[in-house]
Amino acid sequence: MRAVLITVLALAGLAALVGDAVAPHDPAAQNLVLGAVGPSADHWLGTDELGRDVLSRLLAGAGSALFWPVLVAVGTTLLSTALGLYAGYRGGWVDSLMMRVADLAIAMPGMLVLIVLVGVIGGGYGWAVLAMAVLFTPGDIRVVRSLTLAQRQMAYAEAAYTLGLRPSRIMFRHLLPNLAPTVVASALLSFVAALVSLAGLSFLGIGLPAGTPDWGLMIEENRGLLDLNPLASIAPAALITVVASAATLLGDRLFETMSEGGAR
């Protein structure tokens, strides 16, 4: 099962890296006379309203669809791990302050904040990604912090403290490896959440210019073509679902495996 999940994600990653180059047609090339048609030998997944090849746009859109969520996941993971570890290790007023700030951030409706930020204020897709990383971080901080509180009570941590090791060494060399299963699983969940949220923003027509090959945007642009070429919107939706499911399940598997390894 794990091999299947890794293969799915690897293929998606490969498409993100070389999809544009291997696309059978120019993903931007229009043929207004052809318009939206179903699958054919020349267009395996048919074309959209502007006569663009759907398969080529899916391949070219993989980069946009996956790169930004990876960036969000990496940013969220680094930030939440560092802050959660610190809050859990230090405790006291630092912990209380950080948790109250996290509570406040968690209470904010994330998608609404993104829509306001990108749609109303403007600022482009980059700001949406940054905002998403910031909005996802508080939840993960809480998770890491609670695990750190638990690990801090463990004998190995007490020993390290008694030996007078530097706090940074205790946190990153001793506590962090024991949090790894959760951190890795959270990173994959952040990736999934970002993938779906950014596709949602694109679907709402916010952030990316019309015509950009992007899975979320393709669903929005082609949803009126279900009677002419259903694959034009179903294919990107299916890809989002498959990649998100694979990442979620892989995160689950990795958590179990790493937890079992740690227990042994």
Partner: peptide, 28 residues
Amino acid sequence: SGTVMQAVAADLAKIGIKLTLEPMPADK
């Protein structure tokens, strides 16, 4: 607007005029 402007941008690209499309919420 998005559909028409994509078609127009593709046409103008053929003569070297590159339009950078910037979407905005309708009210804005």
